[in-house]
């Protein structure tokens, strides 16, 4: 059953994204929100992990949190989809359940 995972922690400070990637079943979706959006950027110490995980998981990032932090969409890892809050709601609907990696 597909699951939506939300991650709201920067991968440079906390292990939430790493744990999510380790424990999310293939075919799940991961939405990066709040400070979690830093995990969506390329050329970082975390981007290899994310790019690797993208073979099995679909990655999304909340556009409002990117914009708030001055992160240009051009800095995102290729293949990560930017969504707005209604996209967040749609992801929650389209998956059977939601897990927050707090």
């Amino acid at each position: 059953m597909p699951m939506l995972h939300t991650v709201n922690k920067s991968p440079f400070e906390r292990g939430a994204l790493e744990s999510c990637v380790r424990l999310a079943i293939k075919g799940s979706s991961v939405l990066l929100i709040e400070d979690g959006i830093y995990g969506a950027t390329k050329g970082t110490t975390a981007s290899d992990m994310v790019e690797n995980a993208m073979k099995d998981l679909d990655f999304y990032v909340l556009g409002s949190d990117l914009k708030a932090r001055g992160v240009d969409e051009g800095r995102l890892i290729d293949g990560i989809t930017v969504v707005d809050y209604s996209g967040f709601v749609k992801l929650a609907v389209d998956n059977d359940k939601v897990q927050a990696w707090l």
Binding site: T6, N8, A92, V93, K97, V98, Q99, A100
Partner: peptide, 8 residues
């Protein structure tokens, strides 16, 4: 149908 948790 869905429980969504927001926290730290």
């Amino acid at each position: 149908d869905r429980l969504v948790v927001f926290g730290d």
